[in-house]
Every structure is written in C-alpha cells, then in structure tokens.
Design a protein around this nucleic acid. Structure first.
Lengths: 129, 129
DNA sequence: TAATCATGTGAGCAGTTGTTCATATGATTA
DNA sequence: TAATCATATGAACAACTGCTCACATGATTA
C-alpha cells in the first residue's frame, strides 16, 4: 500500500497478513455481529444431536405425548422430557396439555423444512460418494 | 417401599402408551434409520459452533488463507487449523495450497444456502419476539 | 382423600468438544 | 545449506452436554 518503514506489526501474527489486509478488512466488515453468529450457531446446535433430531422427526406430522416419543426414539421419558424442554425454550416445539399427558408438535413449518434440507444434502453427498 | 403385589407391567413404561400403539407404530415406521439420523445430526453439528460458523461465513464469497481467517474470526491459527480440518473432512470447505499458504473456500453452494436459511429463521423470530 | 400416573426437574456422572501449547511438516528464501 | 514462514497436528485440559437416577409436581381416578 505505502512504503511502510515498520518491518513488524506489534501483534505476533503472521506478516503475510499485510498483503491480504484489504481482503481481511472486507471479510471482517461483511461478517455479521458476534451475537448474531452466536445465536445462529446455537440454533443449529439444536439439530446437532441425534436424540433431538429423532424427536423432531417423530413429531413431524403426528402429535405425540412424551411417553410415545420416549418409545419411538428409545430414550427414557426423563431424557426425552429434558430435551423437550430445550426444544420448547427455543421454540422448536409446541406443547399442549391434555389431562395428564402433554402433546408435542413442531412449533413452525420451517423446522421441518430445515431438517429436509439437511436430508437432501446428505443424500446428494451419498450419491457422490 | 411397600410390598405391593401389583405386577406393574413387564416394561416399566407408562401403560397409556398402549392406547397410542398405532400412532407410535406409525411414527416408528416413518422415522428414518438410526444411522441416517446420526449422520444428519453430525452434519448440523458442524454449524453448531460459533467459530466454525464464523469461518464458513468469512470464506463465503472470498478465498482466505488460514492466517487471514485467524484474524477475521479472532482465533489462533492453530485453533482455526483444527476447525478447518473438521470442516475439510466433512467436505464443507475446500483447500488449495499456493506456496506456503493454504486458501480455503466453501466446498459447495449448498453450504452458504443452509447458513442463509438459518439466518432467515433467526431474523423472522426476532421480528416476532 | 389417597393412590396412581404422566411429566418435569435437580444433581451427578461419563463422554465429548474446543481451545492452547509445543512441536512437526512442507515450502520458500537468504 | 540454514533460516524463516504458514500450516498442520498431538497432547492436555477445562468447559460443556446428554444421560440416568431420584424425587417433585400437577392431574386424574378409586
């Protein structure tokens, strides 16, 4: 950029970065805020556990109570209940109490869509591999 | 506690499940195989870490070397390298060596799309909240 | 009311994960 | 060649996660 006298930056990063200064600056400016990216990763994390994915898939289409879900996914009612709380708090599932039972469904059509997109990607990759 | 003679069902699940037997059976039959669901959750898990999401977003559009990525996302080169390996092994990013540097890009257009879908969902939810 | 049932929740734990540090590798340059 | 640089990788560790167990809660029924 200019005839800089300073041979070394204060920070002990690689010097080559200086040649990519613009690229780095641009990438930095395009990168969303930290809290947004954190929220985004937290969102994806919800799908990043096989028990939770199973639960979501199980109630995708049919309304099931905790006990049913427990049997479908093969995890204790307690374990399912813990995961349902997480999913509920993040508004991925909706709960309806009927007597002693609580029925769960997906909160939002998007949730099913997102899982489907993941499926498609996996399947495409399997075709290539 | 007390010596109740009650036989208490063979499996210690809730008995009410029997009334939902059909529903449970149907949900079970519709549920994809365990290994598929496991792979799917592993796939989503890759997006479930803020450092990895940052890396993916950073190289979405511009090709960056490890050192650049390190500066953009604010993690040591070593840490970035470790995560890049994970992303590489799962074919989310592609590496090109040029001299001493290795440039990374997204392996597939789908990857950017999936992140975008997550973004849209987050933003929609923010609007509602 | 007491008993029973479905669900919810806190504690504790084993297994996992992401980071840093130290060092190795592979490439360029003096 | 030796020195330097960018990247890669193994080890170690702290933090996190999901599960089970034990018990609590809220609802129904005998």
């Amino acid at each position: 950029m200019n005839e800089n006298i300073k041979p070394l930056e204060i920070r002990d990063e690689c010097q080559i970065t200086q040649t990519h200064e613009e690229k780095v600056a641009r990438a930095k400016s395009l990168l969303p805020d930290d809290d947004v990216l954190f929220e985004l990763s937290e969102f994806f994390k919800l799908f990043g556990d096989s028990t939770r994915i199973k639960i979501l898939e199980a109630i995708n289409g049919s309304e099931l109570c905790v006990c049913d879900i427990s049997e479908v996914v093969g995890v204790s009612s307690s374990g399912v209940s813990h995961q349902l709380r997480v999913l509920r708090q993040n508004r991925l599932v909706k709960a309806t109490r009927v007597g002693k039972e609580t029925y769960y469904t997906l909160d939002d059509d998007h949730i099913g869509d997102i899982i489907k997109i993941g499926f498609n990607h996996i399947n495409e990759r399997r075709g290539l591999a």
